[in-house]
Nucleic acid binder design. Sequence first.
DNA 1: TCCATTGTATGATAACTATCATACAATGGC
DNA 2: GCCATTGTATGATAGTTATCATACAATGGA
Lengths: 121, 121
Amino acid sequence: MLTQLALHDNGVPIYVQLRDQITALIGRGVLKPGMRIPTMREVAVELRIDLNTVQRAYAELERAGFLTLLRGRGTYVAQPPPIRARKPDAAVLAAKVAALAKAEGIAPDDLIAALKALKRA
Amino acid sequence: MLTQLALHDNGVPIYVQLRDQITALIGRGVLKPGMRIPTMREVAVELRIDLNTVQRAYAELERAGFLTLLRGRGTYVAQPPPIRARKPDAAVLAAKVAALAKAEGIAPDDLIAALKALKRA
DNA sequence: TCCATTGTATGATAACTATCATACAATGGC
DNA sequence: GCCATTGTATGATAGTTATCATACAATGGA
């Protein structure tokens, strides 16, 4: 995983870059549920950043339900909850996602296409 | 242009969001060379942020060659804006979004369906 | 039982970010 | 020339971010 992480000097806080890049890796299926990911210290040393910075990213990812932190054992990609075909929930998420896409200047159709492409990968 | 800007509370500094969203608008051709864009004060009032914050974004965009600032007259999209105008990457957003859906237990197909429904609304 | 590993926590410090207030400086229209 | 508009600049303040140093706490294997 470490080789896929790249921090840039573009004004975005390090912990945000780390958090979002790990989220993206999970979304792409590079990191799968149950997988163990590098320890906070490994990430800190490899990326030459502070342990506290990594902890912040990991902690946010745990709160968001992406990771499971086990003291003394390591960090794992969270087991996703059972998929329910609840359309209302999907609608709420879709609204949020549409706002994100708009902010980044991505057309809804392009996002839909990219999501479909992800499924095939 | 103002209606196309949306700031989020996601840890990314406001001036970075503003800067990147404007470069995306230029990259997409929504803002064309020679066009006048809103004054710093207009942006500050509309987005309810500080004038200094807008100034920072505009100043960085000028240094990067995207904008031309003319005192007393306003701000214009630079005559040939850099070729390196940032093009939004739908795949990156899709990866993040897929992870969000996974964490909430929403099937990708349901999210796609909900996004399509939004378009019709 | 030890002990290395790994996550968790605290406190200090410097740098950065956002806001507020205020003012200056150039431009162009009248 | 006057003056509204708009970009430019400064200084203060509060909150955030990154780093450093250090320590504690739970886990599992030897």
